[in-house]
């Protein structure tokens, strides 16, 4: 067991973890933040995407011990003061989700994509989300949602 201290959605946690524990399991099981979903075991699908120290990362591919000292935001922490993040609002407005399972990871990845490239084009959106799988939507409304959020932020 190893002790780690990290900040998640603005709150500090200190916990003992097995060195092999995946960050996504820590977030879901130790902290009970189940909004971050798991959908593969090869880092291919992006369902578990979170923000860690300002970057969108797949939390199945980070060990909890590697997140010692990190500042993390999960889907539960994206809205501020009860107001949806523009990306959350855009996914709702554009019907960018159906079953909702890929949605938290998709929104977290997309939010960072737009933050890093405010004038993002359709081709850049499609390329930027290539690491996030959705089986329901065919991506079309996701692309529209990301474009809406990008426009809202500019």
């Amino acid at each position: 067991m190893q002790s780690i201290t990290l900040t998640v959605n603005g709150k500090s946690y200190t916990r003992d973890v097995e060195p092999r524990m995946l960050l996504v399991d820590f977030i879901r099981n130790a902290l009970g933040l189940t909004g971050t979903n798991i959908a593969c075991d090869t880092s291919q699908c992006g369902a578990c995407t979170i923000h860690m120290d300002g970057m969108a990362v797949k939390s199945c591919t980070v060990l909890a011990v590697q997140a010692d000292g990190a500042d993390i935001t999960t889907i539960e922490g994206l809205a501020t003061n009860g107001h949806l993040h523009p990306m959350q609002q855009a996914f709702w407005d554009q019907h960018g989700l159906q079953c909702g399972y890929c949605t938290p990871g998709m929104i977290m990845a997309a939010a960072k994509l737009v933050e890093n490239n405010p004038g993002i084009t359709e081709a850049e959106i499609r390329h930027g989300l290539e690491g996030n799988l959705c089986r329901c939507t065919g991506y079309q409304n996701i692309v529209k949602a990301v474009a809406q959020a990008a426009a809202a932020g500019s």
């Binding site: 879901r28 909004g35 979903n37 798991i38 709702w92 909702g100």
Partner: peptide, 16 residues
Amino acid sequence: DPRFIQGKGKYVANLS
């Protein structure tokens, strides 16, 4: 949608 976009989906794997 509001529950899904805020990470509040009630999927079986989330049950404890």
